[in-house]
């Protein structure tokens, strides 16, 4: 019945959220297809957490709408049942043991797979009767993930789950995450600013910058559509096959451009290089100007 709608688990249209006079998120349009593992990327304060809180129904939009499985998530426990959420810093009750947290989940959720949670925690080597406050950051993140997965969600939202973890714990966390969502076909939206991790694990990308979506799409399409061009000093004239220049760096004689292409770049003046996902994201994030900061500090740019 809802087959057509189900192509996108998460849809946002003109979505905006304001704190006082400042828009944390503005005019955000986003469609997240089913079954993807999507990375939500952006610098601190770009609106990643706000977007995730809107999607999980902790916040009500000030403009536009967000839909999860066709439903508005704000104060909607029906929608909430299908969403697993791991908040920033993976908060859990610090005086509860992992075993008690699993028990708690059963009390506050209609659908709850305690066996799944216990199996995952056993695999991750989490002691069942130690208070969560005494676990390491990596272990606590594993507990929070196990709790989110025990809801058997169709959409899993994670807000910087690996930010505070060391590289080894980070890799273990992402591996166990990928392993479990691959089995269940859960769609994942994962915010992070650790780009190298995302490149390994994600197949969909959303780039946020200053509260707006700058780039969204499947990773393979995005990588295929962007190239780095090195050639003579460029002054903004059109280049064949280039749709937009994302970022340009110039020396006196030479220009290095990161571009989105709409066809093959055949001009022999330009040397074409492939871009890694990380370089591409950085090009988008660095593309926005830093002028306003210089003004605010009262110094010359």
């Amino acid at each position: 019945m809802r087959g057509q709608e189900m192509e996108h688990v998460l849809e946002a249209e003109g979505l905006g959220k304001r704190y006082g006079a400042r828009w944390a998120l503005r005019d955000c349009a986003l469609r997240l297809p089913t079954g993807r593992i999507a990375a939500l990327v952006g610098p601190n304060g770009s609106g990643k957490t706000t977007l995730l809180h809107l999607a999980v129904g902790l916040l009500r939009p000030d403009a536009g709408a967000v839909r999860v499985f066709g439903e508005t998530p704000y104060e909607n426990t029906t929608a909430l049942a299908d969403i697993g959420f791991v908040a920033q810093n993976t908060p859990v009750y610090r005086d509860f043991t992992a075993d008690e947290l699993v028990r708690m989940g059963g009390k506050v959720n209609r659908r709850w797979d305690a066996t799944l949670a216990r199996t995952r925690l056993a695999q991750a080597g989490i002691p069942p009767h130690t208070p969560a406050g005494k676990l390491s950051g990596g272990q606590r993140a594993q507990v929070a993930l196990a709790l989110a997965l025990a809801k058997r969600p169709r959409l899993l939202l994670l807000d910087e789950p690996v930010a505070s973890l060391d590289p080894l714990a980070r890799r273990e966390f992402l591996q166990s995450l990928m392993g479990s969502v691959a089995e269940s076909g859960t769609t994942v939206l994962l915010s992070s600013h650790i780009l190298a991790d995302l490149e390994r694990s994600c197949d969909f990308l959303v780039v946020l910058q200053a509260g707006q979506v700058h780039l969204t799409g499947a990773v393979e399409d995005i990588v295929a559509a962007h190239q780095q061009l090195v050639g003579p000093r460029h002054h903004g004239e059109p280049i064949d096959g280039v749709a937009t220049v994302v970022r340009a760096r110039h020396t006196d004689r030479q220009s290095t451009l990161v571009v989105r292409t709409d066809g093959p770049v055949t001009d022999p003046a330009w040397t074409v290089h492939e871009l890694s996902l990380e370089d591409l994201i950085l090009a988008y994030l660095a593309g926005s100007d830093t002028q306003s900061n210089h003004e605010a500090w009262g110094v010359a740019a």
Partner: peptide, 16 residues
């Protein structure tokens, strides 16, 4: 203060 409201309010029950 401990951020656990984000955890408990995104389980299956309403805040109310």
């Amino acid at each position: 203060e401990q951020g656990t409201h984000h955890m408990i309010w995104t389980q299956g029950i309403s805040r109310r």
